[in-house]
């Protein structure tokens, strides 16, 4: 694997291998601490995303490597009008691997056409965010001990939520997966996801507006935030942002071994009274994000 732009770039076998390495890292941390000695990761964040950037940087530091980069484009040459292509060619001279986030969709694909070092897409607008999906897969597999045979509820913004689309794509490749798609009418899953993925692969799914209707059947509940930047109209955002609020009371009907996930940051969609519930796994998920990125960096640098 030269670059990681889209989760579909990875086969099921490659994903299983990354999960295996991540689990080994978690079990044997010392073994991995010098693996990337002398290697440099550049984090090029053309738009700020502190959480994702810190996760990449922590991953590289824990492997014994070092990091350089920028955290927003106003502090870089991009604000002087430099193209993505040029920036990438220059940064490739100073680093062994690049993680980039860009507000424009397709920017990492442009970057990898010109790059001499491996590129990891750390999010391009509302398009792809493959390391978030890898994070979700590692978390689910650790919590459930499997990635097949389960019912997954996806709740919130299913229209613009790229993490949801990627997760559906990735999980649809495993056997016995059923999806419950929970959203207001305005934020329903796009038709192309239904026709190109769910219907095409014959995946069982249902759509509902009511979060409580199918809650007792779920093995995983994946909550998402309604993102302001995806709306052109402020009034729509305000009307929809608090449509779902998961709280302790609602969870009473849910399975004892439900896994509650959220890509974070959350706003109001998960009430803080859920945080102490043993089924809340979103902070573990953030930790998994670091470990899967460690596994990914190793794989892309060709380090065993």
């Amino acid at each position: 694997m030269k670059h990681l732009i889209d989760i579909q770039d990875l086969s099921v076998e490659e994903i299983d291998e990354l999960i295996k390495v991540a689990n080994d890292i978690i079990a044997n941390k010392e073994k991995y601490s010098p693996k990337c000695n002398g290697k440099k990761l550049a984090t090029l964040f053309f738009e700020p995303s502190t959480r994702t950037r810190l996760s990449f940087e922590a991953a590289m530091l824990e492997l014994g490597g070092s990091v350089l980069g920028f955290s927003e484009s106003s502090s870089s040459s991009v604000s002087k009008g430099e193209s993505v292509s040029d920036t990438i060619r220059v940064v490739g001279c100073y680093s062994d691997i690049i993680a980039m986030r860009h507000p424009k969709e397709g920017a990492p694909l442009v970057a990898c056409q010109r790059s001499t070092v491996p590129i990891i897409n750390a999010g391009d607008g509302g398009h792809n965010h493959p390391t978030q999906t890898l994070t979700d897969l590692l978390t689910i597999s650790r919590e459930k001990g499997r990635l097949n045979q389960m019912t997954i509820g996806l709740c919130g913004d299913l229209k613009f939520g790229r993490t949801v689309h990627s997760l559906i794509n990735a999980m649809s490749r495993y056997q016995g997966i059923k999806f419950v798609l929970i959203s207001p009418d305005e934020l329903k899953i796009p038709d192309y996801v239904k026709t190109n993925v769910l219907d095409k692969l014959g995946i069982e799914y249902c759509e509902t507006k009511d979060i409580e209707e199918y809650l007792p059947e779920l093995d995983v509940l994946y909550m998402t935030r309604v993102q302001k930047e995806r709306f052109f109209n402020e009034a729509d955002y305000i009307r929809l942002k608090d449509y779902y609020i998961l709280n302790k009371a609602k969870l009473e009907k849910a399975k004892k071994d439900l896994t509650i996930l959220h890509p974070l940051p959350r706003v109001n969609e998960i009430s803080t009274d859920v945080d102490d519930d043993p089924r809340a796994k979103y902070f573990e998920q953030a930790l998994c994000g670091k470990y899967i990125r460690m596994a990914l960096i190793l794989k892309m640098l060709g380090i065993e």
Partner: peptide, 10 residues
């Protein structure tokens, strides 16, 4: 929001 809207010579 597409990169083709801003990247030169693409």
């Amino acid at each position: 929001r597409c990169i083709t809207s801003i990247e030169r010579d693409l």
